[in-house]
C-alpha cells in the first residue's frame, strides 16, 4: 500500500490547497468549505498550471494561469474545456489526512 499520512486537516486552509512533493511530481491537496479533501496532480490539463495556486470555490478550483475550472472530485475540466488532472485517493481520519500515491485509474 502507498498510503502516506500527510498532516492534519487544519494544515490545509478552507477553500485552499497545499502541495505534497513526491518523486513523481507535485500533488495538490484541496480542502473545501464543507471540509471535504481532494487530491489532484498539481498540473492543469491545459498547460500545466499549478492548480494548488488557484482559487477554490464550491467543489472546483480555477487554474491561476488561464482560468480553466477543474472539478475537484473527478479532476475533469468543466465543459467546454476538456482534459483531466489525475486524481489521488485521500482520506481523513480523526482529523489526520492520508494520501495514496498511486493515482486512481482514469475512468474509475
Amino acid at each position: 500500500m502507498s498510503w502516506v499520512e500527510i498532516g492534519s486537516l487544519d494544515d490545509i486552509p478552507h477553500l485552499g490547497a497545499r502541495v505534497v512533493r513526491t518523486p513523481q511530481g507535485d500533488i495538490a491537496v484541496f480542502r473545501t468549505l464543507d471540509d471535504q479533501v481532494f487530491a489532484l496532480r498539481d498540473a492543469c490539463p491545459h498547460k500545466g498550471g499549478p492548480l494548488s495556486q488557484g482559487i477554490v470555490h464550491d467543489h472546483r478550483v480555477t487554474c491561476p494561469l488561464h482560468n480553466w475550472k477543474i472539478e475537484l472530485a473527478s479532476g475533469e475540466a468543466v465543459a467546454p474545456d476538456e482534459g483531466c488532472a489525475g486524481r489521488y485517493p485521500v482520506r481523513v481520519e480523526n482529523g489526520r489526512v492520508s494520501l495514496n500515491l498511486v493515482p486512481e485509474a482514469a475512468d474509475a
Binding site: V4, I6, G7, D11, I12, P13, R18, V19, V20, R21, T22, P23, D26, V29, L101
Partner: peptide, 12 residues
C-alpha cells in the same frame, strides 16, 4: 508560512 512551504516532501 504555510503558503510558501509544501505540506510534505515524500522521498523516493
Amino acid at each position: 508560512a504555510e503558503e510558501f512551504e509544501p505540506l510534505l516532501e515524500v522521498q523516493a
